[in-house]
Design a protein around this nucleic acid. Sequence first.
DNA 1: TATGGAGTTTACAGTAACTGGAAGGTCAAG
DNA 2: CTTGACCTTCCAGTTACTGTAAACTCCATA
Lengths: 135, 135
Amino acid sequence: MKIGQVATKSGLPAKTIRYYESIGLIDPAGRTSAGYRAYEEKDIQTLRFIQRARSLGFSISEVSALLTLWNDRNRASAQVKELARRHVEEMDRKITELQSMKDTLSELIDKCQGDHRPDCPILNDFARLNNKAKK
Amino acid sequence: MKIGQVATKSGLPAKTIRYYESIGLIDPAGRTSAGYRAYEEKDIQTLRFIQRARSLGFSISEVSALLTLWNDRNRASAQVKELARRHVEEMDRKITELQSMKDTLSELIDKCQGDHRPDCPILNDFARLNNKAKK
DNA sequence: TATGGAGTTTACAGTAACTGGAAGGTCAAG
DNA sequence: CTTGACCTTCCAGTTACTGTAAACTCCATA
C-alpha cells in the first residue's frame, strides 16, 4: 500500500506520516523498487493509534511513550492511566486559564459601549498601570 | 532607562522586548552613546499595554491592531469591542474543544483498572479502528 | 508510442512567539 | 585594575507540522 492510501485510511496527511517517520516516531517504511514507501495493515493500526492520541491532545513525546507502552505486552495499565491522568490535569489547567482570561475580557467587553465614540474601557484597562490583580 | 529596568516595570523579559522591536511591534528604542537601548516612561506604558493584551491571549498581530487603535484618537470603541468579541469567541471554541477532549479521556481513564495487569481500555480505544464518533 | 495527470520522492523554508546560549562591549564599585 | 552585573548582536532550538519546488514513477488513453 502506498502512502496516499494509508493517509486516507489513517486520517493523517501523507505529509504528516513522512514527518513522523523523519522524527523517528514511527519506523521507516519499506520501499518499493521505485522508491515509494510501502505499508502494511499493521502500519495503519499504528498510525490510527497516533492519530487518536494526538486528537486527544497528547504531545508527540507523550504519544511516543504511549506507543512504547502499547507495544509492551507486559506493561502495567497503571502506567498508562498515570500518563493519561497527568494529561487530564494539564488540560484542566489550560481550561481554567482560558476560562479566566475569557471572563476578564468578557467583563471588559460588557463595560464598553461599542459605539462611534473613542472612549473604550477595554483599551483603558490595557493601558492601566496595575492590573495584575483585580480589586 | 535601560532595558533591564523597563523589563521589570513592564513585566516583560528584556529578551522579549528586543524581540518585539525586531518584529516591528514596537518602534526601535533610542540609544545611549554606548549603544544601550534607552527608554522613557511612555515606552513602559506601551509595553504594559502589550503585556496585558498578550496575557489575555491576544496574538501578536491582534496586539498590533489594538496598539493602532489605542494610538488613534479618533477610533470608534465599536472596533475594539468587535475585535475583543471575536477573540472571546475563539477562546470559547478552544475551551469547548479542550473540554471535549478531556471528557473523552476522563471516561477512558475511569474504565481503566490501573493495576499491574496489561489490559488497558485506554490503549484499546486508541487502537480501535473507528472511533470518530462515540456510539 | 507518446503524453498527460495523479501520486510519489527529497529538500528547504515558513509558521508563532519566544527562549537559550555564545562571544564580546560597558560601567560602577571596591 | 578587576570583578560582576548589564548590555549588545547573532544564531539555534522549540512544537508539530504545512507549503513549495523540482524531479521521478505509474497508469490510462489517444
